[in-house]
Design a protein around this nucleic acid. Structure first.
Lengths: 346, 346
DNA sequence: GGCGGTGCTTGGATCGATCAAGCGTCGCGA
DNA sequence: TCGCGACGCTTGATCGATCCAAGCACCGCC
């Protein structure tokens, strides 16, 4: 109150402090603090009075002061993966939305950053940890063995991974989507439609996620006694790669359907079909992975495996909460099941 | 140093503080502070010594403490717009990336949030301002008159808008893309290819952005003495709306080309063409707006107007810097020119 | 009348960096 | 030799919330 009695009109008024609220409510600072952090300690009429004062002044506790004292920032760090032009996979957008929402409900905000050196997986994390700018991280780009997880683990920084740890020794909590279950559902769906020669276009062998998704396809075919040899291709995650792979497969193995590790690859297949005058969903079926906007709006529609990103976010935030509160170093994993969204391409 | 001589091994070591660095370097706290914020004040040998100590300890200044003292957070707030399923417009993703990158270079991080009440345009901003959690905002969803800009202006919260103020009284800094120039380029491009009956599919009349983009189309046609009557349609930003509008226009006005206010609408046109067996780029040309991933990967490719979002972000951050440093309330605007990306559909 | 408990106050320290003033040293000119 | 100013560094106070310990007023109960 009245810290600046000769206030110049031009200067925005300083926000009220705890002491201001206390003065208005006619109680001590400690009581206001308790009203916020430990309301059970107050008599109900006092609590009411304090809350009225808070509303009247439009008071919100100063974040910096609270953070300094409690050694917590209530921020969750998320490093953006380098933006890939020309691919269909806009998974990040949906995931970020879900994460922001789930975080808010848990009293957290999301801080975005990117590495100044994109080739260094630890870049960016370091400084945020040391300056105690965030309480924990969500690590997403676990596509190739996840080097930053190892770094964060020995720096004993709390984090939850979106993606299984593909190295056996890892102990951190994680949430992931069962890719194999998704491609298995896709394959079963195609089998139900009468397809028997179903091809796979996936990622290079060193991608654990790619191999996981591939397993769902091959497992399902084998279960029905159908062969997979000659029907699989592993390429880069590019539209052109998918197009070429589809061309080769069509020429050499004459599949009637494709299951792909991503919507990007599936779009490549659609390119190939368009070039040959084959109609997706009639002549050849195609299933993608991620249910990207592209799958949703491409003419005819692309059948695709949709990850439950909203649920992933909720589960991640749950684990973050546990991690931050108590100082547990371990954590549990959760494997969620995706859902097949059927559209015109199958 | 040695704040906890009986350190338990399980507990992560507390990060070093300014005082720790000072002790190692044999100087006072203030000198270390100056080494970071005002290196010119130090004698070069002292500076060297302090820097060595900083490196040795892996010191980064505690954000909370700095924020408390300087009354700044070095965070920029960005409210996510509600996620629209089934549309092509993934502009946000690219913009967020660009913003994060530009912010980092200016020493800022991006804090994401969303309104707990999506219908209230001011929701979410309020609390962040009062708790001094962010220094400024970037306001993006200025599509319909931008009610939160008015709110932020009276609350005298620093912000920069991505999007022109459509109300004349507004004084805040802004950065925008010249939509009319984009659609004009698209229309000229089509004229150059020999089209004369060029249709427009845009948004409802109450969208200033939509009307701006429409103006580029009509202006260009009129300049060549070509009519626009009967060739325009205004609908919701949905694929199905675009499809229907294209159907009506084809039946009633027989255009040979379409310019659309968004890639979503353009995809609708492609749907309509596919249904009629017309080939985009051969029988009928189509141009979209935003250069979304969809435009990039759809078979045949969709010609589209690409916004220079990287440059937008840079300009926004520049203005944020000015706003935050000095307490200026005014700010300048910048109108950037988009670029037409030509693909198979035209 | 004494006793315990509830509900609040008081005074202080604390988190870690920055601000503002102060102080010693050195060089230079009078 | 003394005074003066500049340079380079130090010292104490401060930002606002939280945490802690102690204490006090008031109430009801035995």
């Amino acid at each position: 109150m009245g810290r600046d009695p000769h206030r110049v009109l031009d200067v925005p008024p300083a926000p009220p402090t705890l002491a201001d609220v206390a003065a208005v409510a006619g109680v001590s600072r400690q009581t206001v603090s308790n009203a916020l952090n430990n309301p059970a300690l107050l008599r109900s009429d006092t609590l009411e009075r304090v809350r009225a004062a808070i509303d009247q002044l439009g008071y919100s506790p100063n974040r910096a002061a609270r953070n300094l004292r409690t050694r917590a920032s209530h921020l969750i760090g998320l490093r953006l993966t380098p933006f890939a032009e020309g691919t269909a996979n806009a998974t990040m957008d949906r995931f970020v939305h879900s994460l922001v929402q789930a975080s808010r409900q848990a009293g957290y905000h999301v801080l975005l950053f990117d590495g100044d050196d994109p080739t260094d997986p630890a870049s960016g994390y370091d400084e945020l940890v040391r300056s105690t700018a965030v309480d924990a991280f969500v690590v997403t780009d676990t596509y190739r063995g996840n080097p930053q997880a190892a770094y964060l683990e020995d720096a004993s920084v709390p984090f939850v991974a979106f993606g299984r740890p593909w190295t056996p020794a890892a102990l951190h909590p994680w949430v992931d989507v069962d890719g194999a279950a998704g491609t298995a559902a896709a394959t079963s769906h195609l089998l139900d439609r009468g397809h028997e020669r179903i091809a796979w276009i996936g990622w290079r062998k060193d991608s654990p996620i790619g191999e996981d998704r591939r397993a769902g396809w091959s497992r399902t075919l084998h279960a029905r006694g159908l062969p997979t040899t000659g029907l699989a291709s592993r390429v880069e995650d590019l539209v052109t790669s998918g197009r070429e792979a589809a061309g080769v497969l069509l020429d050499e193995a004459a599949p009637t359907a494709f299951v792909c590790a991503s919507d990007t690859l599936a779009m490549g297949v659609l390119h190939q079909l368009a070039e040959r005058g084959l109609r997706p969903g009639h002549d050849v079926a195609v299933v993608g992975f991620d249910d990207s906007p592209v799958a949703q709006v491409v003419p005819g529609g692309l059948t695709s495996v949709r990850q439950p990103l909203e649920e992933v976010a909720v589960q991640i935030v749950q684990r973050l909460g546990k991690l931050i509160g108590r100082r547990e170093r371990f954590g549990s994993g959760a494997l969620l099941t995706p859902r097949l969204v059927v559209r015109g391409s199958s």
